[in-house]
């Protein structure tokens, strides 16, 4: 589940690091809204980066369910599997 070499996980972490300019130490438990200080549009914008890199579209209701970085990895993995 937490394989650091998992490509989906790497893309999510890379994109988040770029969005937050490395200001916060990221883990699966990092809360995206509270700890990274991103508003609703900023979250949708960085998810768009991830969508491009994985060639997957993420419906907005799936984004709304995400709280932690780990949730986002799981969501992306799920959608990529379906694609």
């Amino acid at each position: 589940m937490n394989d650091p070499d998992d490509p989906v996980r790497m893309v999510v972490f890379d994109t988040l690091r770029a969005s937050t300019r490395g200001a916060v130490e990221l883990s699966d438990q990092t809360n995206i809204v509270n700890e990274l200080g991103l508003d609703s549009v900023a979250i949708m914008d960085f998810v768009m980066e991830i969508e491009d890199r994985l060639d997957v579209s993420v419906p907005l209701d799936r984004i709304a369910e995400v709280e932690t970085v780990g949730d986002l990895v799981a969501t992306m993995r799920d959608l990529e599997g379906k694609g």
């Binding site: 949708m44 768009m48 579209s57 993420v58 419906p59 907005l60 209701d61």
Partner: peptide, 14 residues
Amino acid sequence: IYDGSRLGHAQVTR
């Protein structure tokens, strides 16, 4: 537009 999309039951992407 966002709120109208959320009020319905379609899948929404941007």
